[in-house]
Design a protein around this nucleic acid. Structure first.
Lengths: 82, 82
DNA sequence: TCGGTATGTCAAAGATACCTGACATTGAGG
DNA sequence: CCTCAATGTCAGGTATCTTTGACATACCGA
């Protein structure tokens, strides 16, 4: 239902680099549920900033190595007003 | 009401550096309301990752120059489970 | 075959983030 | 004094994120 997010992430890759950490293991370290990790990993929605920071810290990388925001599609953008 | 967030930010400082941009002006550029900007600026809650990226992009700085996540206060930390 | 681990899905409910709209305050000018 | 721009607050609603709990699938080893 919700709009799929624009933000992408590399969580799955990072998990495997980090000693094959499981989703449940990650969920545990950031103190959230397994389902939430799955949803974020699949890009179903973008997490809160706090959660994003926690995840990045588990892998010991800066936040923008985990989450990526695409370029503003230059076309007709940015002008929408009401 | 809500739990105050752990994340701090430098939005106010960045606004003044950026040609004295007003809150309303910033709200306009990231396509959200003035009230939301105020709330975020005051740290009443932490925005979604997408919003955070948009704000950082307005000021042309990386995300972690706008928002800061404090060190895990080493005290009783890291062991909490349920 | 059975048990356990890892991943994924769904529905319903709770908690936050975000919006709309109205109003109060301060400071700079006319 | 009056007005306007900028900041801030509050109440009430909508949208989105997060949790809980149940269940499905696949893989692996005993």
């Amino acid at each position: 239902m919700g709009k799929p997010t624009n933000v992408t992430n590399s969580i799955r890759a990072l998990r495997f680099s980090a000693n094959e950490m499981t989703q449940a293991g990650l969920a545990d370290r950031v103190d959230m549920t397994r389902q939430t990790i799955i949803a974020i990993e699949q890009g179903r929605y973008s997490p809160s900033l706090e959660v994003a920071f926690k995840i990045a810290r588990v892998f010991n990388v800066p936040l923008d190595e985990v989450f990526h925001y695409p370029e503003e599609s230059s076309s007709t953008a940015t002008s929408a007003k009401k």
